[in-house]
Simulated assay, not measured.
Amino acid sequence: MFIEAIVQTPQEALRAEELGVDRIELVSGMKEGGLTPSYATIKQVLNEISIPVQIMIRPHSYHFSYDERDLETIYEDIRNVIHLGGKGIVFGALNQDKTINMYALETIAGISNELSITFHRAFDEVPSQEKAYYSIASSKNVRRILTSGGKADCMEGKEQLRRLVALSDEIGGPKILPGGGLKVDNIKEIHRHVEADQYHFGSGLQVEGDFSKGLDREKVRIVKNNTKI
């Protein structure tokens, strides 16, 4: 069972590894929903921890329909990640009609054959998650899709998450990574219903739910125990 946690600094990354988190999502600007971290932060984290690192690639928080200048920034940020030795990125892009921007996704997948891509919660804005899943699955290097099942959080979206996990298992496509509103008092129920093999936590693993206070050792312990069912 994989537990992924959001971190924003090298100190938080080291803390996550120490507490037994299996993978981290490195971001900046959590108040804006998560943006691309700085070059220096990426470099430090990649040099200092051994667990897998997925790096957010998101130039702004306005929307997920990127123009050509946005996309050039995105491609350059990904090349920088690769230059630093990173392989994991978190990315999502939509067309104006909220369908998956396959041109952007396939361009990114073609930058390096070693990329491990998480398609993020832009997936929760698409008109049909099943159709979007098949589109994403046709692109190489997308390993997982972060989603709350198209709802505000995983508890509300648990029925759809269960269907998406079954679809992933059926076709052997990208794994479903439930995320959004996960915390110690609901992960057991959600896991029993959804039966994913990995989960993504944000404020639910932080001391008092506050990113400025860092990861809570006891919450990490409880979550890891509650997903062994």
Rank of each mutant, 00 (worst) to 15 (best):
M1W: 06
M1E: 06
I3H: 01
E4D: 03
A5T: 03
I6V: 15
V7Y: 06
T9S: 00
P10Q: 11
Q11H: 10
A13F: 02
R15E: 03
R15Y: 00
A16F: 10
E17N: 06
L19K: 07
D22F: 05
R23S: 13
I24H: 05
L26V: 06
L26C: 09
V27M: 14
S28N: 13
E32A: 12
E32D: 02
L35M: 08
L35F: 00
T36E: 00
P37A: 11
Y39D: 01
A40L: 14
E48I: 05
I49H: 04
I51D: 03
P52L: 09
P52V: 07
I57R: 02
R58P: 01
Y62K: 14
H63V: 01
S65F: 15
S65D: 15
R69Y: 15
D70E: 03
D70V: 15
E72L: 12
E76K: 15
N80S: 09
I82N: 08
H83W: 09
H83G: 09
L84Q: 05
G85W: 15
G86S: 06
K87F: 13
V90G: 07
F91R: 09
D97A: 13
K98I: 03
K98D: 07
T99K: 03
T99S: 11
I100T: 01
I100R: 01
I100V: 13
M102G: 08
Y103L: 12
A104C: 12
L105I: 02
T107K: 15
A109P: 04
S112V: 03
N113H: 07
L115H: 09
L115M: 08
S116M: 13
S116D: 14
S116V: 12
I117D: 04
T118P: 05
F119D: 02
F119M: 12
H120Q: 03
A122K: 06
F123V: 02
V126E: 01
P127I: 09
E130C: 04
K131V: 11
A132N: 00
Y134R: 12
S135W: 09
S138P: 00
S138Q: 07
R143P: 01
R143I: 14
I145G: 04
G150F: 07
K151D: 13
A152L: 14
C154L: 10
G157I: 14
A166M: 12
S168K: 13
D169E: 15
E170C: 09
G172M: 04
G173E: 11
G179F: 00
G179H: 03
G180S: 11
G181K: 02
L182K: 07
I187N: 04
E189M: 15
E189T: 13
E189C: 03
H193N: 14
V194D: 08
E195C: 07
E195R: 11
A196I: 10
Q198A: 14
Q198D: 10
Y199M: 08
F201Y: 08
Q206G: 06
G209W: 13
D210M: 03
F211N: 00
G214K: 02
R217T: 15
E218C: 05
I222F: 09
V223W: 03
N225Y: 12
K228V: 03
